[in-house]
Write a protein that binds this DNA or RNA. Sequence first.
RNA 1: GUGGACGUAGCUCAGCUGGUAGAGCUCAGGAUUGUGACUCCUGCGGUCGAGGGUUCGAACCCCUUCGUCCACCCCA
Length: 426
Amino acid sequence: MAKIQAIRGMNDILPEQTPVWQFVEDTVRKVLSQYGYQEIRMPIVEQTELFKRSIGEVTDIVEKEMYTFDDRNGDSLTLRPEGTAGCVRAAEEHGLLFNQTRRLWYTGPMFRHERPQKGRYRQFHQIGVECFGMAGPDIDAELLVLTARLWKELGLAGHTRLEINSIGTSEARKVYRQALVEYLNQYKSDLDADSQRRLQSNPLRILDSKDPSTREILAGAPKLDSYLDEESRAHFDRLRELLDAAGIAYTVNPALVRGLDYYGKTVFEWITDSLGAQGTVCAGGRYDGLVEQLGGKPTRAVGFAMGLERLILLLETLDLVPAHVNSDADVYVTAMGEGAMAPALALAEELRVALPEAVVVSHCGGGSFKSQMKKADKSGARYAVILGENEVANGTAGLKPLRSDEPQRELTWKELSLALAEALKN
RNA sequence: GUGGACGUAGCUCAGCUGGUAGAGCUCAGGAUUGUGACUCCUGCGGUCGAGGGUUCGAACCCCUUCGUCCACCCCA
């Protein structure tokens, strides 16, 4: 009989890993709150129609990557493949967008049925940020300043680079798409197979094809840049000025085209070269049309999503996880002999009250004193507290430093709390 | 969906032209009646991913299947 195991591409995050996750999540949460962003929590499942209408019927995500199933009453439901659609739905449904500005964020798992590889999983985690009701490039710039700040806080500054582009309004894009297809059709047989296919499905994506002969043909192709509408151009120019003023380095990548249908005007990606093929660590853009498209009043919007797995992979690959990010104990309380068991539990509890920041682990599960000391060492604790029948009789406990050569001391319980409070300060 | 590499102990891996499975680490115990890390000794631990085939005999050869990884595609 086959062993039951996790679904392909859906990973367990084990205790070894969770401190890094918490570090990233806590850091992001702190920065977002500094900028005045509010958390919103949405369900993981939505009506299938929501994603079809927002992401685009003909995208790969909707066509072949969604986890879609029928509810018991026959409704078609889908595990969210991204967060923006649900966020817009929730905000609109509860009147959060009417005549006001909003800065929102959320985090959680997303689901796409893709072939897993490095940095790409079927259940993956994003932190998404969405801003509503602000038309100008200032909020675009704020989002990029915010992300740059995040890299700094995570220790990733200098390990990611920013690429930006403007893809204009959907009208401008439509005209350009036509021109591009017309041009490329002249060379159709010289294009690589994937690009020939994309000629039908998503011509703009041919722009970043890696195929050499396709690239050669693209050199003479019409440029999206020259098809931009006036407003988009002005918006983009102003955004660049704001980024320059803020000291955010970027490159304009004319081939940068986001895959989801709802984007327009500003699009951007933070990319690393240290993760192989899945180097996009954060990506987003403006989507002024989406709220209306989903049945709300016209509402300007811009946002981005970060892939947590990729960020964590990057921190680990570059060995940038700070040393303090671990689940090490501070104090390990041993109990020697049956008579010490109850006092040891009581002492540990006293220490937790006296040292609210410290991790105090009680030895449980028996074993020789030697093995208790081994476990104290393994726990990463800086101090072992030793409680045997002698100490219980004397009303004392032994305090043994595990990471230095200082001698072991025998202290009363009160002295022990004070000594540990002092010792754990730095 | 397509292509390539790889599945042997909890982990990292050896295992020759086919002869019936090993090391290091981890864990437990001991050398040291109540003191971890270093050293030494002992021990626990395997349907060799699964199923079938060839063979006197398969971890090794063949077929099928499942899984993992990387890349394409796509994307966070």
